[in-house]
């Protein structure tokens, strides 16, 4: 479904929800991803709207815009966008309650919610605390974040809990597995498109997606990627990613990555390299090395 959007003129998919105007929910989503979906929706700037393309709207949504799975979503999205900009359609309210993550008002010396140097929950959140470091041994703050399940640079549905020191991953955990996409013929090209986007080549990524949507083989794709230095840009310690990108562009079989767990491979990696490695695994391998709990069909994308 994402591949079909790449062809559409006048629609551009955004990496950050803050840059988008419409949240497009494409395909079925898991029940466990509902809260993430709500969080994502509320982060949209006003005026905003949600379109459900082959997906069931959340039960409490008022006046939902639904698009049948077989339909072309573009005309509807354009109409929705126009209505939003003209004010013909009201902007959607928040789906989550308007309350801070932790109650903090009025506590602490200045009502900021914290006490001492690092204590309490200043402005609703605690501060990151010291943690072990695995590379240079400097004990600085370890930050735990969950990324995904709807981050465009990760396989759809995959959510990782990362403990970071700076931009180097100390510890990783798979929070939710990726949606299974094994049966889809165009999957290698979509995966290649994700890697190309991580390498800062949006145009080539779009070309790969269009080729995936058309279902034809774009012969020049490998040569074009080579010309733009996509393979050269990957350092020697990402040689496995380079091999898998090359294979994905040719729609060939990727070399077997071995039995090692994904989360162990991520430890000690820098952010961009780690995302490149995650994006390079094919769905079957990913479901093996990043254990899947409940396989289910579906994809989510956001569009503006």
């Amino acid at each position: 479904m994402a591949a079909r959007l790449a062809r559409a003129p006048g629609i551009s998919l955004q990496h950050s929800i803050r840059h988008a105007a419409i949240l497009l929910v494409a395909g079925r989503y898991r029940d466990t991803d509902r809260s993430a979906l709500c969080r994502l929706h509320d982060q949209l700037p006003q005026p905003r709207a949600t379109a459900w393309w082959g997906a069931a709207p959340l039960t409490d949504v008022h006046d939902p815009v639904t698009i049948a799975e077989g339909d072309d979503p573009v005309p509807q999205l354009r109409r929705l966008d126009r209505d939003l900009l003209r004010g013909a359609r009201a902007s959607e309210p928040d789906w989550l309650p308007d309350e801070p993550p932790n109650a903090w008002r009025g506590k602490g010396d200045h009502g900021q919610g914290g006490k001492g140097m690092m204590g309490g929950v200043p402005y609703g959140r605690p501060m990151a605390m010291m943690g072990e470091e695995m590379r240079d041994g400097l004990m600085l703050d370890a930050m735990t974040v969950t990324i995904g399940p709807f981050l465009r640079t990760l396989p759809p549905g995959l959510s990782l809990e990362l403990t970071l020191q700076g931009d180097v991953i100390q510890q990783a955990r798979v929070a939710t597995p990726a949606y299974s996409a094994s049966g889809i013929a165009s999957e290698p090209l979509l995966r290649a498109a994700r890697i190309l986007e991580l390498l800062g080549l949006p145009d080539l990524a779009r070309r790969a997606r269009i080729s995936a949507a058309r279902g034809d083989d774009d012969e020049g794709l490998v040569a074009a990627a080579r010309r733009r230095g996509a393979l050269l840009a990957l350092p020697a310690d990402l040689a496995d990613v380079r091999a898998r990108l090359d294979a994905a562009l040719r729609r060939g079989a990727a070399p077997d990555p071995g039995e090692e767990c994904l989360v162990d491979r991520l430890a000690g990696m820098e952010w961009q390299s780690a995302l490149l490695r995650v994006a390079s695994f094919d769905p079957a391998t990913l479901s093996r090395i990043a254990p899947a709990a409940e396989p289910e069909e579906g994809e989510e994308e956001k569009a503006a």
Binding site: L40, R125, M143, I147, G148, L151, R152, A175
Partner: peptide, 9 residues
């Protein structure tokens, strides 16, 4: 964070 969250500032 793409639907994810951060625990601390």
């Amino acid at each position: 964070l793409g639907g994810g969250s951060q625990s601390a500032h």
